[in-house]
Design a binder for these strands. Structure first.
Lengths: 147, 147
DNA sequence: ACCACTATCTTGAATGAGTCAAGTTGAGGT
DNA sequence: ACCTCAACTTGACTCATTCAAGATAGTGGT
């Protein structure tokens, strides 16, 4: 886990001013992968006291634009954020409880960019979401097998 | 393009009552792939006159639950619907204009289900979204090359 | 064809993530 | 220390989607 000084360097490296809300949001995202905006707001407030939700929204957008964090939003979920950026990893989402876990790219470094026919598009990123059940939900709930 | 009778059969096959809103929504989704709810409401109303938005929402949910249509919702987009179900195809989304196109699975039939490590999840579906620019947007807008 | 049953539709209000706007504060440079 | 503008606060607002209650109309049986 990076320290405050590291976060400060990250911000300066992205030409962003170093403010306490930004440091706190950056720390929150690093500590709580896949947290939604609301959770991040709560964590930040535990850290700093009152901080406006607008500030957190702004910060998250700035950090996302600077590629310091990445946002994901599977169907039926609000926006979630994570600090793993720059690598080519994907996500598994549990249909039952909504839990999200990281998975590394199935095939290699960035071959996911290869679509069989690209419909004329210039593709720069492939986002993969695996759907299923986490081990806990698979154990507890009936799998409704066969129908 | 299937005819009304085909839609009727689809509904009965899914144990759903055959109503005009349902036939109209089913037709709209077949005719307008990747349309959002609002567009579908408009198309349905052109067809039937006044229909409540709630009815369309309900119908779309029922059809989705019955696997007669599929919903997709890339980041920053509202829910969109398509009638291609049961095959293993994915989508390209244009970052500039939001256009969506179908792409067939990159690797084969359903190998997308193979994650390198599944984090203990039981995976049943892989959803892939390719991000890039459609040919039109790639031609008109500067590619902001190099950063 | 008619009836009963209830799934489906209508109407209207509510929810909630996210955005917009105007004014204040504070980080960073001189 | 002072200035400037990015960043924060406050508070209102948007709009896709959902909730709830009552009216309507498919469907199966007679």
């Amino acid at each position: 886990m990076p320290a405050t000084l590291d976060f400060e360097r990250m911000l300066r490296g992205a030409a962003l001013r170093v403010t306490r809300p930004r440091l706190a949001v950056l720390a929150a995202v690093h500590e709580h992968a896949h947290a939604d905006t609301d959770s991040i707001i709560r964590v930040v407030r535990e850290d700093l006291g009152e901080v406006s939700h607008q500030a957190v929204y702004d910060v998250l957008r700035a950090l996302t634009a600077a590629s310091l964090v990445r946002s994901i939003a599977p169907q039926g979920s609000v926006a979630r954020y994570e600090a793993r950026v720059g690598d080519n990893h994907h996500h598994v989402v549990c249909r039952a409880c909504g839990a999200i876990a990281d998975v590394d790219c199935a095939v290699g470094d960035a071959p996911c960019l290869t679509a069989s026919n690209d419909a004329g598009y210039t593709i720069d990123e492939a986002e993969v979401i695996y759907w299923g059940r986490c081990s806990e939900c698979a154990a507890t709930s009936p799998e409704s097998s066969g129908g």
